[in-house]
């Protein structure tokens, strides 16, 4: 039996907001296998953002345990957590979160800097990542000179460059038109075929349709967990 990539057990997360305790997650169990695509759905306030933050090692659970690739990461220091993020997780955000006034290449290279990869290696790997998202030849464009779709592809390249097994995409098409959305989703689906685990966090059923599993949250609990046959973005686009 292989260890699941992600194993969350009885995860709870409480925030203190002034005098109130906010229970964002109230005991969530979730296991995700390597190489799958999963959509985490829910309305705002359902706890899906908290879920993503914890899964992405940006945040830690108040209670419960989180095993990432078999290793408990729920009690790590900030610095150790940063290290895990760098190696295991690639983020794709709704608002791209690229550095402005900085070239596409430098943006993609950035995660490698924190892993101590040599300059020559960084260039090579960043170029390859940009090629994979069909941005060869745009390496030296500044991010603000690129279209939204191109920017999101740079962000995907940045998530890919570290060879992290998990891609966390938070509303990846939220700022894109539908045609560009298909392109971005096609790339993400391509990654699943290559063996990456892609986690989509979204409130749109259209986007969730591209995943093979849909988990729905409400008020900090999983209310639905179903398998489905994903829609192929490539076919829709064509």
């Amino acid at each position: 039996m292989t260890t699941p990539l992600i194993e969350m057990r009885a995860i709870e997360r409480t925030y203190v907001m002034g005098d109130n305790l906010v229970h964002a997650l109230r005991g969530v169990d979730l296991t995700i296998d390597k190489g799958s695509s999963i959509a985490i759905m829910g309305t705002s306030g359902s706890g899906k953002s908290t879920m993503m933050n914890i899964m992405g090692c940006l945040d830690q659970p108040t209670k419960g345990s989180y095993l990432l690739n078999g290793k408990d990461v729920s009690r790590l220091s900030r610095s150790q957590l940063a290290d895990v993020r760098g190696r295991m997780i690639g983020f794709v955000f709704q608002s791209f979160n690229l550095l402005s006034r900085t070239s596409a290449l430098e943006n993609v290279e950035m995660p490698l800097m924190y892993q101590g990869v040599s300059s020559a290696d960084r260039h090579k790997r960043a170029r390859q990542a940009l090629e994979r998202v069909n941005l060869a030849g745009r390496e030296h464009h500044h991010t603000n000179q690129l279209s939204g779709g191109q920017q999101q592809r740079v962000a995907i390249a940045r998530a890919l460059v570290t060879e992290a097994p998990v891609i966390m995409a938070d509303e990846p098409t939220g700022n894109l038109d539908s045609k560009t959305s298909f392109e971005v989703m096609a790339i993400l689906q391509g990654l699943v075929d290559e063996g990456k685990t892609v986690i989509l966090v979204t409130h749109e059923a259209d986007i969730a349709a591209y995943a093979s599993r849909v988990v729905t949250l409400r008020d900090g609990l999983i209310i639905e967990d179903r398998q489905q046959t994903p829609v192929k973005a490539g076919e829709v686009a064509a």
């Binding site: 900030r78 940063a82 290290d83 993020r85 570290t162």
Partner: peptide, 16 residues
């Protein structure tokens, strides 16, 4: 601040 957030998300440690 945003840049710091991005850097941390991709693996920058507080010390970095």
């Amino acid at each position: 601040t945003r840049e710091i957030g991005i850097r941390m998300a991709v693996g920058a440690k507080p010390l970095d």
